[in-house]
Write a protein that binds this DNA or RNA. Structure first.
Lengths: 199, 199, 199, 199
DNA sequence: AATGAATGAGCGTTCATTCAT
DNA sequence: CATGAATGAACGCTCATTCAT
C-alpha cells in the first residue's frame, strides 16, 4: 500500500529489461561484447544473475534485443533529421543524413558496429548489409527518382558512403582528427561529389 | 615418446614460426579469431601445443606477428602495383591503388579486418589507423605535392576512401553485388570524384 | 494484480494439493522426476510458483506425498482384488495379487518405480522395502498360516516375487515380450512354483 | 632421469582414465550419479577439473565407459563361475550363475543399477534389457537345449529371475535380511523351482 | 628444441526456494 | 491465500597457459 517503499525490489518487466539492456550496452561499449559476462551485466544492473534470464533467453537474445533497440532509436533520429529538411532539398537531405548519422552519434556508431558487425557470426556481413545502409539507399533512390542526381549502382554507392562516413566517425572518435568541423564539411563535400553534384 | 625418431623434427625457429603463422592465418580466415584455439593451430601446423609457446608468448603475440606479416606482404603488393604506373600518372596510381587493394585480395581484405579490426581490444581503432590507410595517405600526399589534386584534409580523405573501398570489397565478398566489373569501375570513379578530378 | 477478480481463485487447501499432486504425477510419468521443474508443475496446475510452497515444503516433500497417495490408491486396488476371491482359495489369492499388481497397472508400476526407486536418495532401498512388498508379504504369511504353502524366508520370497513380477511388467511395457497373455500365465506359474504348489 | 620423482604428475593415459573411472564409480555408489559433480570426481582423483575432459568427452561418456568396464568385469566373473562347473551339470551352472551374480557382488549389483538403470534416459529399460539378463538367457537356453529343463518363455523367465535375484541382493545389501546364507540357499531353490527342477 | 599432460579460472545457463506485495 | 519477480549457488564444459620430461 505504501508507495515509494524504501527498496523496491520488484520492478515492471519492461523497466528491468531496459536496465539490463542499458547495463549491457554500456559494458559492450567499454569492453566489447565477448569479454562482457552476464555476471558483469547483472552486477551493473544491480540484480542477481538469474534475473537476467527472466528477461532474456540467452546472451545472444540480449544482443538481438539491443539490435532492435538500436534500429528503433538511431534510425528514428536520422529519419527525423532528413524529414526536417525542405521537401525538395535533396542535397540538404543528403547532408542531413550524414550529419545526423554522425554528430553526437559516436557512441551509437560504435554500438552499431558492436551489434551489427563484431557480435555477428563469422561471416561478418554487417558493414554491407545493415539498417543504416538500407536507410541511406532509400534516400539515394528517392533523390535519383526526383532527378536530384544520377546513380549507376545505388547499393554499391550506399555501401561506399556508409563505410566512408563510418571510418571518419571512428577516426574522430579516436581523436585522430582534431578538426571535427572541417571533417564534417569535408564529409558533406565527399557525399556531394560521390553523387556527382556540387553544394 | 621413442627417442631416435626417424624424421628430424627440429626445424629452424623461423620456419616453425612461419608454419604456425600460416596455420593460424588459414584457421582465422575459416572460423574467425576467437573461435580458433591454440590446439587447432598446432594441430594444423603439425607440432605440439607447447611448441607454440616457444615461438609466441601468447595468442595475442601471434596476432600481432600476423599483423606485421600482413603489412609486409599486402603492402608490398599494393606498392608494386602503384610503382608500375607511369611516374606522373597520378590518376593511374590512384586507380592502381584501389585495384591492387581490391582485385584478388578479398582474402587479404578479410584477413586485414580480422587482424586490424575484429581481433582488436575493444577500442577498435583498426579502421582508422592501419598500414593500408597510411599507404594510401602517402600516395594522396604525393599526388597533392605534384599538384595532381588538391586536398584539404588528407588523412580524413584517406580514411574515407579506405573505408568506402573496404565496404564495397566486403559487399562483393558477400555476393550482394553481382557486377564486380561495374563495381570496380564505379570505385575508380568514386576515388576520382573524391579527389576532385575526372578520369 | 487486480483485486476482485471475476473467478474465485482461492480453493480449499486439499483441492489445491490434489491438483498439484496430479500435475506433478503426470509430469513425472512423462519426463521423469529430476527433469520436472516446480515451474512446470505449477503451470500445469494453473497456479503460481509460490502457491506450490504453500502446500509443500519442498520438491522432496511433494514426492513423499505422492508416495503416500500411491500406497493408499494402488494398494487399495490390489487389496480389493485379493479380497474378491473365495476365502480359502490361496492359489487364487496369489494369482489375483499378481494379476492386480500387473494388469492395467503399467502406469502405476512406472509411477511406483519413479517414486520408490528412482527418486530416492542414493541408497535406493526402494525395491526391497516398499508398501507393495509388505502387502504381498502379508498375503504370503496369511497363506502359510492357513497351511496353503510352506515358507522358510517369507520376506526374501516376497522381495523375490515382487522384483521378478516387476521385471516382467517393465519388459511388457517396453515391448520386449509380445505375448502378454502367455507372460501372465507364466507369471502365475512362477508364483505357484515359488511357493511350492501346483495350480 | 630420476625415477620415482617425488610427485609424478604425468601418468599414462590409461592409468589416469582408470583413476577417474574408479573415483567416479565410488562417488556414484556413495551418492548416486546425478548428484556427483565433475569437480568431486576430479578432486577425489587428485587432478584438476580440466584433466577429466582429457579422458572423457562428457559426463555421459564417462558413464558409458563405466558401463563397458562393468560388463567386461562382472560378466567375466559370472562367466568364469559358470564355466568352472562340470560340463553337463546344468543345475550346478544355474546355481553358480546365481551365486556368482550375488556373492561378493553387492557393489557390482548397485553399480549395475546405477549404470544400466538409474543413469539412463527416461525410458529406463535397464532392468529388462541389459548384459546380465542376456547372459542368463544364454545359459537358460543352453540348458534347455541340453534337455536339462523345459522353457516356454525363456526371455520372460530370464527377466523374472534376474529381477528376483536382484531384489534379494538389494535387500541383503540394505540389511533387511540378516541370514545371507539362508537367503542364498533359498535363491538357489527359487531358481530351480522356476525352471521346474529339484536340486 | 619439442612434447603434451595437466592446470584452473572462467563462462553461460538452470532452477529450487524466498518474500514483498 | 495467492502471486511471480528475484535470488544465487551450483553445474558441465572450454581453453590459454605452464612445465616436467
Amino acid at each position: 500500500m505504501r508507495s515509494a517503499s524504501p527498496v523496491t525490489r520488484t520492478k515492471p518487466a519492461a523497466v528491468r529489461r531496459e536496465e539490463l539492456l542499458s547495463a549491457a550496452q554500456r559494458l559492450f561499449l567499454e569492453q566489447g561484447v565477448a569479454p562482457t559476462t552476464i555476471e558483469q551485466i547483472t552486477q551493473r544492473a544491480q540484480v542477481a544473475k538469474g534475473t537476467f534470464y527472466l528477461q532474456f533467453a540467452s546472451k545472444e537474445a540480449l544482443i538481438e534485443a539491443l539490435r532492435e533497440r538500436f534500429a528503433a532509436q538511431l534510425l528514428a533520429g536520422v529519419d527525423a533529421a532528413v524529414a526536417r529538411t525542405a521537401p525538395a532539398d535533396w542535397p540538404g537531405k543528403l547532408a542531413g543524413w550524414a550529419r545526423a548519422a554522425t554528430a553526437g552519434y559516436l557512441d551509437s556508431m560504435r554500438l552499431h558496429d558492436l551489434l551489427f558487425y563484431a557480435a555477428r557470426p563469422a561471416d561478418g556481413a554487417g558493414m554491407t548489409d545493415n539498417p543504416l545502409i538500407d536507410h541511406l539507399l532509400a534516400l539515394l533512390l528517392a533523390g535519383a527518382h526526383a532527378r536530384a542526381w544520377h546513380l549507376e549502382e545505388p547499393r554499391t554507392l550506399a555501401v561506399f558512403l556508409f563505410n566512408g562516413l563510418h571510418g571518419i566517425v571512428e577516426a574522430a572518435a579516436h581523436g585522430r582528427e582534431p578538426h571535427r568541423k572541417r571533417a564534417a564539411a569535408q564529409l558533406e563535400q565527399l557525399f556531394f561529389r560521390a553523387v556527382g553534384i556540387s553544394p
